[in-house]
Write a protein that binds this DNA or RNA. Structure first.
Lengths: 127, 127
DNA sequence: GTGTTTGCAAACAATTTGCAGAATT
DNA sequence: AATTCTGCAAATTGTTTGCAAACAC
């Protein structure tokens, strides 16, 4: 199962690198199509899944039923607006303390933690 | 939009109350069918959604693509096994501190927080 | 009697997959 | 030449919805 180079995959990574808004597969698809008009949604999905599996990008399941993707794989917190659905990074430095505390009373292996904050984003809370 | 009583809805709530494993809609369906063999999956979904909306149960989107449901609506932490997919409660007391810290540097309204720990459960880490 | 809920089936949305041909090594 | 990757379309999965009949108040 050796990886081969592919222009489409590169393009998907490049596109994701320019975005800080954690786009969905469909948004990536529409973005990459400006460079590769013939690329298919299936290819986008396949590559996003692949890249997430090998750890080059992160797949965010924020709970809105659609997967979001993040070029930034460093552990950090996300905010999800329950009105407009936007996903934003939080400034809050990521703390492993909670993970360690969780490990204390737990039989089994805790590898990591996923935290999403939800509420209304700046724009949506102005009404 | 007044609520009327329904045996099916009662049965769904009762079933959920007996379970600590955060079952999916399908599991609820199969469980309730032992008492109401004619209940339909649609009815189960409709009621689970309704109950979650009025806050009587909690809908958990743990990130495996399937919704899980919890009779316990008090804020608490969940663990999700990335091997067998089981969902368990953590003993760890729930802390609002992180939410408050998140509010500090954020423009907008943070209402709550959803944290999932992932790794391998006791059974799955034995191999 | 009015309005809500049900069972059924069809619709839907997001994602995955099978396949033959194209691209990469 | 061998194998991976692509585009396309069909399949799959989880969930929602439209409708006429059944039920609750």
């Amino acid at each position: 199962m050796n990886l081969k180079h592919s222009r489409q995959r590169d393009s998907i990574k490049e596109f994701l690198a320019t975005r800080k808004d954690h786009p969905t597969a469909d948004v990536v698809y529409m973005g990459v199509r400006r460079i590769y008009p013939n690329i298919s949604l299936g290819t986008v999905y396949r590559n996003l899944t692949l890249l997430a599996e090998i750890g080059e990008i992160a797949r965010l399941r924020v709970g809105d039923g659609v997967d979001h993707f993040d070029y930034d794989i460093s552990p950090h917190y996300h905010f999800v607006c329950s009105r407009c659905g936007c996903v934003k990074d939080l400034e809050l430095p990521f703390s492993e303390q909670l993970t360690e505390k969780a490990r204390e009373g737990f039989t089994g292996e805790i590898e990591g933690q996923m935290t999403y904050f939800y509420g209304r984003c700046a724009e949506c809370s102005r009404e």
